[in-house]
Structures are given as structure tokens and as C-alpha cells.
Amino acid sequence: MELRVNPNRMQLLRLRVRLKTARRGHKMLKDKRDELMRRFLDLVRQNKELRQVVEERLGRAAGQLLMATASASPAVIEEALAFPKQKLDLRVKKDNIMGVRVARFDFSWGGAGGEADLYPYGPAHTPADLDAAIKTLSETLPDLLRLAEIEKAAELLAVEVEKTRRRVNALEYVLIPKLEETIKYITMKLDEAERGNLTRLMKIKQMVHEAEA
């Protein structure tokens, strides 16, 4: 369906400019979409790998914690962990992927004795496997934060990809065909008028000839 415009040369020129802009916009958006897609797939792949690592580690930690809780009463475990020792300083920065604003986590251990000094309880009356669980969990934390970062970024990117794809489609299947059709229509109208004029002129010329003859 073409646009409702007056089929004159002025409009034709204007529409041609619009079509050119739309084509250029379409190409750029398509490039953006492809690039977003590439980045998105990249993130998804990273996410999948990291998720496997994290899930495997968390599963291991859960197993270790299970054995710890099986060999001491819950009160012992709760008390052992009641006073956390390590501090994690977490800062959130903003980053930009193709115009999408995503979060970047930046963290550092704030505890007194560094990373080896994790255990906030005495060893004499606590189950030994608690150590292993705590260690595994604290080793997993950086990956867990990275995973959160990637997953959120992927989610935001997916939204952006979808938006861009819709715009590309709108240009490709709606605006550009419409403009083309309208241009064609105006061209045809103008051609028609041209031909009508020509015929009229020829007719007048013929009539003038006949009158002269």
C-alpha cells in the first residue's frame, strides 16, 4: 500500500531522499543486529561454560556441606558460621556493549589475613569437611559473580537484539516497500501525465496541420 501523497515532482524528490535514508538505516541496523547477535552468542557460550563450572563446584560444596552437617549437630554448624570473617568489597561499574549499558562487578577480599584465612571457627569441635565446603564456596564466588555479570548482560543484549531486529524488519518489510511503491506510483502518475501531455500535443499538432492544409 502506498502512502497518500500528491503525485508531484516535489514529493517524488522528497520520497527518494527518504528511501535513500531508509536503505542506509536498514543496512546499518542490519550490521548492528549482526554484531549484537555475534556478541550475544559469545556471551551465551561463555555463560554456558561458566555455568557448568559453577554448578559443578556448587554441587561439590553441597556434598561437602552435607557430610559436615551429617557429622555435627546443626547448632554446631550454625555457630561456626555465625560470625563471618571475610569481607567482600563489591563495586558495580557500568560498561557499554554496542550501546547497551551493562554492569561490571569489581571485587576484592577485605578480610584481615587474605584468601587463605577463611575459617571463622575453631577446629577442635567442628567437622573437618566444613573446611572443604567453605573453601569450595569461596573459590566459586568470583566465578559466581562473573556468571551473574554475563547472564545479566546476555539478558539485556537479547532485549536489544530483539528491538533492533524489529526495526530492521519494519524498515525492510514496511517502510522501504511503501516508499518504493509510492515512488513507483508517483513516477507512473508523472509518466502518465507526460504521456497525456505528449498525446495532447501531438493531437494539437495534427489539428494545426489539418487546419493549415
Binding site: 570473617k85 571463622p120 571457627y121 575453631g122 569441635h125
Partner: peptide, 16 residues
């Protein structure tokens, strides 16, 4: 010494 495990350890020692 500044660590919560010191509390546990000191109490464990007193119990011992």
C-alpha cells in the same frame, strides 16, 4: 588477634 575463630579456640581451650 582479631578473628572470630579465636573466640572458638579460646573457649575450646577453657573447656579442655
Amino acid at each position: 588477634f582479631g578473628g572470630p575463630e579465636e573466640i572458638d579456640q579460646a573457649v575450646d581451650r577453657a573447656y579442655q
